[in-house]
Design a protein around this nucleic acid. Structure first.
Length: 408
RNA sequence: GCGGGCAUCGCCAAGCGGUUAAGGCCUCGGAUUGUGGUUCCGAUAUACGUGGGUUCGAAUCCCACUGUCCGCCCCA
């Protein structure tokens, strides 16, 4: 038998689990403070949820989904969780609650891609979604939450990039003008860009093809695009966001080329990047998706959110060593040792002993590796009803009774 | 889907056509029959990814496959 974890998946081992627990606990702490509530949705959903929600022009839906048929029903392992959260939001009539509805989630996502640094087929995201607030304060709240969360994990030197894609109304205008600006050199662009031109011209800005990038520069696309005006409402929204961010002391850079790969974004989009991640450098990505709830059959509902890649965050924070237990009971009398361990655990204190009843020196050696203190329980101690407690870090030891021990 | 690198014990790793295939770490035992973390000794009874080929001879060269890592695309 030689079965290995499938390509692009990883076991999270005991030696690294503390980092994960720390990240998840930090998320819970930071988000709870802002009254975001955790939600857990299924790992698979009806395929059509993603086809509609994520968008059938996206790579995610076109070539990266794990889809299977069961009882004539097409199901898909979730490639992201916004669609699932929106589905739950609708299914449980959250839109009848007084806005905002603020939710966060954590869990595995699945995308069939070639694994590389910072990318797996099963990976984990932590994300937030905020429903019901039109005002840019919601966008700012989400970005702030992301920054606070990363800061709490000790990540300060990340860059926040923002942009506005406009609403449906001005996006049409925006697209037309973008297309007009690109038209003169369209046939010089790469094949992908030519395909995107009709289907989803915004994505052209995201192209990393060297030749295309050069052309953008040559034709001053950057200036032309940043010159395109959003409709008054979107423009005001965007300005308001910037005002909020500045007031909240959140540093950001504007990136007019920033376009997200999912179809549902409107107005605000943003990314948080790190220079220490290799080529997959986005730690967090998100934005506003005012049309999605309605698209999935609910009432028109403004919404903002983001998702972070937990593996990517994890690779940026220092590894926490696995902890030591408090006591290791060293004794030739296994029965008494076991009883003492049991009593300590009942007091809520971590303790262990040698299941093999090995020689004294071996037991002590083991103790020094996994525990803070060794409790020596020999014939003398048992007879006279005390414990010799040895602090393993400096070899100091003293006689104690049970009350003393549990206070340590 | 397309490129490139790498594959030697549980982990790290030497070896570059002829070796009993180094060494270190970890684990276990002993020196030390109630005091560890240092030191010394020993053990882990078939480790060269798989399958072909070249050669008198292959871990070492060639081919294919598989795995893995990195990059493109895309994304977190």
């Amino acid at each position: 038998m030689n079965i290995k974890a499938p390509k692009g998946t990883k076991d999270i081992l005991p030696s690294e689990i503390r980092n994960w627990q720390h990240i998840e606990k930090t998320a819970n702490d930071i988000f709870s403070r802002a009254d975001f509530k955790e939600i857990r949705t299924p790992i698979f959903e009806d395929t059509c949820l993603f086809e509609r929600g994520v968008g059938d022009t996206t790579d995610i839906v076109n070539k990266e989904m794990y889809t299977f048929i069961k009882s004539d029903r097409s199901l898909t392992l979730r490639p992201e969780n916004t669609a699932g959260v929106v589905r739950a939001y609708l299914e449980h009539n959250f839109y009848r609650e007084s806005p905002p509805v603020k939710l966060w989630y954590k869990g595995p996502m699945f995308r069939y891609e070639r694994p590389q640094a910072g990318r797996q087929r099963q990976f984990h995201q932590i994300g937030v979604e905020m429903f019901g607030i039109q005002d840019a304060s919601a966008d700012a709240e989400c970005i702030m939450l992301a920054v606070e969360f990363l800061k709490a994990l000790g990540l300060n030197d990340l860059t926040v990039e923002i942009n506005s894609l406009g609403c449906n109304i001005c996006r049409r205008e925006y697209k037309d003008r973008l297309k007009k600006a690109i038209a003169p050199f369209l046939n010089e662009l790469c094949e992908d860009c030519q395909n995107r031109y009709e289907k989803n011209p915004l994505r052209i800005l995201d192209c990393k093809n060297e030749n295309c990038t050069k052309l953008f520069e040559k034709y001053n696309l950057k200036e032309t695009v940043s010159g395109i005006e959003l409709c008054p409402e979107c423009s005001e929204h965007y300005n308001k966001l910037k005002t909020y961010l500045t007031a909240l002391n959140i540093k950001y850079t504007e990136n007019t080329f920033l376009v997200r790969g999912l179809d549902y974004y409107t107005k605000t989009v943003f990314e948080i990047k790190s220079n220490n991640l290799g080529s997959q450098n986005a730690v967090c990505g998100g934005g506003r998706y005012d049309g999605l709830v309605e698209l999935l059959g609910g009432p028109a509902t403004p919404a903002v959110g983001w998702a972070m890649g937990v593996e990517r965050i994890n690779s940026l924070i220092p590894q926490v060593n696995s902890y030591k237990i408090k006591f290791f009971v060293v004794s030739d009398n296994q029965l008494e040792a076991f009883k003492l361990v049991s009593k300590l655990r009942q007091q809520g204190i971590s303790a262990d002993f040698d299941y093999n009843a090995r020689k004294f020196a071996k037991q002590l050696e083991k103790a020094s590796k996994i525990a803070e203190y060794a409790i020596i329980l020999g014939e003398e101690e048992i007879k006279n009803n005390y414990f010799t407690v040895k602090k393993l870090s400096d070899s100091s030891q003293e006689k104690m009774d049970f009350e003393d021990i549990i206070k340590l």
